[in-house]
């Protein structure tokens, strides 16, 4: 019982991280119909810039308890850095290809992904050494349920992720700008005819998606303090799993991305705990193929018939 609860808690925490990243994939797919492979690397930059900001502010592993505003400052600056990064990626790599075949945009995305990884590896940027994130949040136990310790970090991860998802829902479905976003995702040309600035909306989508990825990166660094080097394959794999979450939930669908993220997190953690910890990557991709075979548009995706 204790084990199961602990596993579910882990699944919830990891799943909300996947969900945050998946939102970025699904927003870009909904609007531009292409897989933004560089999104996983924006997440990596988010985690690393959180570390870099924390280090620049003088917080280290050995430096004692940081003040309460430290986590907020680090989170906001990391989100800011990635939002700017997302804006520039869209502006200079994807916008020139707006009318090119989707395959080209995809290759460009891979190019951007390689660029981010390898720029991150440069010595003046983050370097090639793995680093340990200092604990910005105190490691206090909030409460215990059936012998499972629920710490401040876990609760922060889940609550912050949920808050951001709710915020995004509000943005997309309750604001004027959100209806412009939905209009653009429905049809670029008609949206433009209705007086919507399509380029602005697309830029904004990238900014929001990248900021969410940065938040996920920060939370990831809080929960798992060891940061692998920027070009390490684990980052790409985390990005891919988040992408799988978006597909499983139904790509282009915001609630789907959240549901998919939680599902992927749970499946991964339950599989690792009860089947074999070595095969944890396997469950995710088997789930993906299973979902695609029986429900190709994902759990919450809508089917559309292609007409001539």
């Amino acid at each position: 019982m204790t084990d199961l609860l602990q596993t579910l808690l882990n699944g919830l925490a990891v799943g909300s991280l996947y969900a945050l990243i998946a939102l970025g994939y699904t927003m870009v797919y909904g609007i531009l119909q292409f897989i933004n492979f560089a999104h996983g690397d924006v997440f990596m930059i988010g985690a690393w810039s959180a570390y870099a900001v924390a280090a620049a502010l003088g917080f280290t592993l050995a430096g004692g308890d940081p003040p309460g505003w430290a986590a907020v400052a680090v989170l906001l600056s990391s989100m800011g850095i990635c939002a700017v990064l997302g804006f520039f990626i869209e502006r200079f790599a994807y916008r020139p290809l707006r009318s090119a075949p989707r395959l080209n945009v995809l290759i460009t995305a891979i190019g951007v992904s390689l660029l981010l990884q390898n720029t991150g590896q440069l010595r003046p940027v983050f370097g090639t050494q793995p680093q340990s994130m200092p604990a910005l949040l105190p490691d206090t136990t909030l409460f215990q349920v059936a012998g499972v310790r629920v710490g401040l970090v876990d609760v922060t991860v889940v609550l912050l992720a949920v808050a951001m998802m709710v915020g995004l829902q509000w943005l997309v479905f309750r604001t004027r700008f959100g209806s412009a976003m939905r209009a653009v995702s429905h049809d670029h040309r008609i949206a433009a005819l209705m007086g919507i600035r399509v380029d602005t909306v697309i830029s904004f989508t990238f900014v929001v998606g990248s900021a969410l990825a940065a938040a996920a990166g920060f939370l990831f660094a809080m929960k798992y303090s060891g940061l692998k080097q920027p070009a390490d394959a684990t980052w790409v794999l985390l990005g891919l799993k988040a992408f799988v979450a978006a597909v499983v939930g139904g790509i282009g669908n915001l609630q789907g991305a959240m549901l998919g993220g939680l599902l992927i997190g749970m499946v991964e953690m339950l599989g690792a705990a009860y089947l074999s910890p070595h095969l944890r990557d396997l469950y995710v991709f088997v789930l993906l193929i299973g979902v695609l075979l029986f429900r190709p548009t994902g759990i919450m995706g809508s089917t559309s018939v292609e007409k001539v």
Partner: peptide, 8 residues
């Protein structure tokens, strides 16, 4: 990576 993006 830059060459790839530029060629595309």
């Amino acid at each position: 990576a830059l060459m790839l993006v530029l060629v595309m």
